[in-house]
Design a protein around this nucleic acid. Structure first.
Lengths: 167, 167
DNA sequence: ATTAACTTTCAATATTTTTTGAAAGTTTAA
DNA sequence: TTAAACTTTCAAAAAATATTGAAAGTTAAT
């Protein structure tokens, strides 16, 4: 496999995987492109490489910056803005986990808590609703806490140790 | 909060969370409805509760069965088919993790492996592509392995509990 | 073998999400 | 201050995805 083929394959695969970590295709592809680039890229560069419009590029770069995954790079003497992404995969995982937790998981946990806290009126269906949403609340909360602990704290050490434990 | 309000809130929240575990809204809502139901439900029941069409219900039930989350229940003397979902949240988590790994993560890991294995032609850009996709491959593979091992542990634990029951 | 009860399929339709492109906005150099 | 270089915004268009409903298919009872 040639460089260009491998690059295209990586970008399109990573793009379609976007849904797995909660972002859209263009956003994921821009990140992928920056991730394997040896230097910061301009909006023009990105538009051309991915064959997407200026507006699309601008909006998705903003979102990536909101996520904290991409940063604007000012190159002295240059008028254009340049962009880079976080290059360390562990740090990337940390950011993604944290943002997803904040944006999606935490709000759901709150609702599960509210729903599981309704007054028990003694009926079977109410008992079931309380029981099941409580179980879901506990599971979701545990998972969320675990994931954040794993990615936040001394990641490398934890990952290695956990792997050994399970081998 | 009344039972009905809590129930509706749970179903719509769980439905919109579907994207988090890779299924569509109707599918997630059907599962949510079954999850808090005290008895198996027929297609008619589901259509009526969620206000969705027969076709939609049928297709999404099939998908839930493909995932292994929902099972058909035959009620003696009844012509209709009835459906139930796995009620244990741990088992549910296990199934979802396993299916997502199989459907989405494993194929990506393979591509990352292929891409990171291209021949190093000595250029800076090729070196960067190899380095970065290799890092991503390792991270993804580690995460996937961890999840699978956790799942196996859970299964072992489950098996043990079941064995105890039959002793 | 016929019919009634029920489920599945799938082309058409509706909805949601993404993308475009051009006008409006901003910044910097002269 | 003007104008060129660049970025953002957002209404409209396109693309992707989900939903409908009715015809076709299946099953079970008589």
């Amino acid at each position: 496999m040639e460089y260009q083929e491998a690059k295209d394959k990586f970008i399109s695969t990573w793009g379609s995987l976007g849904s797995l970590w909660g972002i859209n295709k263009a956003m994921a592809q821009i990140q992928a492109l920056l991730f394997i680039s040896t230097k910061p890229l301009s909006m023009e560069d990105i538009m051309e490489e991915l064959k997407i419009s200026r507006g699309n590029t601008s909006m998705n770069l903003r979102q990536l910056m909101d996520w904290g995954i991409v940063t604007k790079e000012i190159i002295p003497g240059e008028r254009k803005e340049y962009f880079t992404t976080e290059k360390d995969v562990q740090e990337l995982a940390r950011i993604v986990a944290k943002e997803r937790s904040r944006r999606e998981i935490k709000p759901v946990i709150k609702i599960l808590k509210d729903v599981s806290s309704i007054k028990d009126d003694g009926t079977e269906k109410t008992k079931e609703l309380i029981k099941q949403t409580k179980a879901l609340h506990e599971l979701t909360d545990t998972m969320d806490t675990m994931i954040n602990k794993v990615v936040n704290q001394q990641q490398k050490w934890l990952t290695k140790s956990l792997l050994k434990l399970f081998k």
